[in-house]
Design a protein around this nucleic acid. Structure first.
Length: 571
DNA sequence: GTAGGGTTAG
């Protein structure tokens, strides 16, 4: 575009000065079309353009989401300053391009440009969103050893301010490294950096992941004690923490006491009730929300569908789903997550064919989550025919997710098709797909104790196994028989039973029975779905010990009390 | 001078 043309378009009667251009740029930060024109003006003005001008332009482009164009300008620049690197690194993160963001950081450091305090939060955010394979590559490329990129960056920072701590702690929580996050939180205290609301939110979130109700409450109380004003985000995080620890009652008390509640508060409650198996409470709260609360969003509806799914409420699930569709609200139209949930509702209750045709009728392309829900249902109902279709689709969409392979293999195993089980295993070996090891954890006196299957590493190991034997003796006389079908291995019967007997959740339960004071419930967190035998075992021991046992597995809660489970054996 | 971190879902 010619200068005159630009000027005309911008209605400028005279050639612009640097000042004019700078002012123009500031004014046009929300108008992408004019930005391009101004860029042309800058280039054709013949002025020796200052970096600050391009900086402003680039920043504007990034805000508008045109990172490609920003990158083009950036590459044409001579020795861009740190601020500019930061701007672009941030731009990539904001536009969901973490790989590009980290690559740019890599280039920055290889050119010897020193990152400043602002670089860190951007790169950490990007590396938290990095796909695993990429994180590994990046770490290799920088020869950072076995610590992550973020770790390296953090430890080498000269000055760590509050935001640096907060962004690292938050990144750890988001990546699922909750105990690392709590360790950092502790270290932060030792370094005499006073946490603020943002820190507390992440810390509470970490406690929720770990199921550490006591630690979470302590953190919240001490923050208030230190004079920190609580805000709605902190309170929502605390609600969620309680719910993730299975303490629905405490969450409700806090919710009722809140002066202000937003859509997140309501949704957190509804979701929390749903995963805790309290569907009536979830749906009752939803109907109250419709009358007196804020407008539900798509997460709220996800909670409503979860409530139906966990309680096996098929017709109600169908009704809510069509309600969402019929609402004609464009922002609330069902997303893939809602479809997965609906497939789960239909499939798990045995309506496999209906679930399949439901998927075929989807207006949006089904993703791995949707097919995974179908495969899960097929594994439960031993429907190898439909399960095979789902598995084929899954391997197209998400070829190397371990849990789908495990599901498929379990489906074949429960149908007794050991040749097919072996094929899946072979495929996993070939593609180096490793099963996630099962573990269970339990909090005691602000410490987390972790158990793996057949674990002997705990200091109290011998008394734990003794307790387990005692329990087997007692429940055996009450009619407990181990369910060998839960072990998906084609091995001898005795071996099957031997493995079952030492599943991680059983070890954690024995530990809990020995150590947790009699009036408190025993809270166990398991990283995978629990098996039929452990579920049955827990029902028995809740009866003989007269204790409440709360177990959170991969997708939901089981509250065992006096021989029964809140899930009513449907999970 | 300009910019950075937080809650529900996955």
């Amino acid at each position: 575009m010619m200068l005159a043309e630009c000027r005309q378009k911008l209605s400028l009667p005279f050639p612009p000065t640097k000042q004019t251009l700078a002012t123009l740029l500031k004014a046009c930060s929300s108008q992408p079309h004019q930005l391009t024109q101004i860029h042309a003006l800058v280039l054709t003005s013949g002025l020796s353009v200052k970096n600050s001008l391009i900086t402003q332009l680039l920043a504007n482009l990034v805000i508008l989401g045109d990172v490609q164009y920003a990158r083009k300008l950036f590459d044409e620049m001579h020795k861009p300053r740190v601020f500019l690197w930061n701007t672009l690194i941030r731009g990539y993160v904001k536009n969901d391009m973490p790989v590009e963001s980290v690559s740019l950081y890599g280039r920055m450091s290889s050119l010897g440009v020193r990152p400043d305090g602002f670089t860190f939060p951007f790169v950490v955010k990007a590396s938290a969103e990095l796909p695993d394979s990429w994180a590994a590559l990046t770490i290799h490329a920088h020869v950072f050893g076995d610590v992550g990129l973020a770790d390296y960056l953090f430890e080498t920072m000269i000055e760590r301010d509050l935001v640096a701590w907060n962004s690292f702690i938050a990144a750890c929580v988001q990546m699922g490294y909750a105990s690392k996050a709590l360790a950092l939180f502790h270290r932060m205290g030792l370094a005499r950096i006073k946490p603020d609301a943002v820190t507390i939110v992440s810390a509470l979130s970490a406690c929720g992941q770990l199921g550490c109700l006591n630690i979470g409450n302590k953190i919240f109380d001490s923050a208030l004690y230190d004079g920190m004003e609580s805000n709605i985000i902190v309170e929502n995080a605390r609600l969620d923490m309680c719910m993730k620890c299975g303490s629905t009652h405490m969450a409700r008390t806090l919710f009722d006491e809140m002066r202000l509640r937003n859509v997140v508060s309501w949704s957190t409650m509804i979701l929390g009730y749903a995963v805790n198996g309290k569907s009536e409470e979830a749906l009752a709260l939803f109907s109250r929300m419709q009358n007196e609360g804020p407008k539900p969003n798509y997460v709220t509806y996800l909670g409503v569908l979860f409530a139906c799914s966990h309680a096996g409420l098929v017709s109600q699930g169908r009704a809510y789903f069509s309600y969402i569709v019929d609402s004609n609200d464009q922002n609330l139209q069902p997303r893939r997550e809602h479809y997965s949930c609906m497939v789960d509702i239909l499939g798990r209750s045995g309506h496999i064919e209906e679930a399949y045709s439901f998927i075929m009728g989807m207006p949006i392309e089904p993703d791995a989550g949707v097919w995974g829900a179908l495969l899960g249902a097929c594994a439960i109902h031993k429907n190898v025919k439909v399960g095979q279709v789902a598995a084929d689709k899954l391997f197209e969409l998400a070829a190397d997710i371990a849990s789908y392979h495990v599901l498929l293999s379990n489906m074949y195993a429960s149908a007794g098709r050991w040749d097919s089980v072996e094929k899946v295993r072979l495929r996993m070996r070939k593609k180096c797909i490793k099963k996630v090891a099962a573990y269970s954890s339990i909090e005691l006196n602000s410490e987390v104790h972790v158990f793996y299957t057949g674990d002997n590493s705990h200091p109290q190991s011998s008394s734990i196994y003794q307790k387990l034997e005692d329990l087997y003796m007692q429940i055996g006389s009450l009619g407990y028989i181990s369910e060998v079908g839960s072990v998906h291995h084609d091995v001898e019967m005795e071996e099957k039973e031997a493995m079952l007997r030492v599943h991680s959740e059983k070890l954690a339960a024995a530990f809990g029975l020995i150590n947790v004071e009699p009036e408190s419930p025993i809270r166990i967190i398991k990283n995978l779905r629990t098996c039929d035998d452990c579920h049955n075992f827990f029902k028995f021991i809740s009866r003989i010990s007269m204790r409440e046992i709360i177990m959170r597995d991969k997708s939901r809660f089981h509250h065992f009390r006096n021989g029964t489970c809140s899930c009513k054996d449907f999970w």
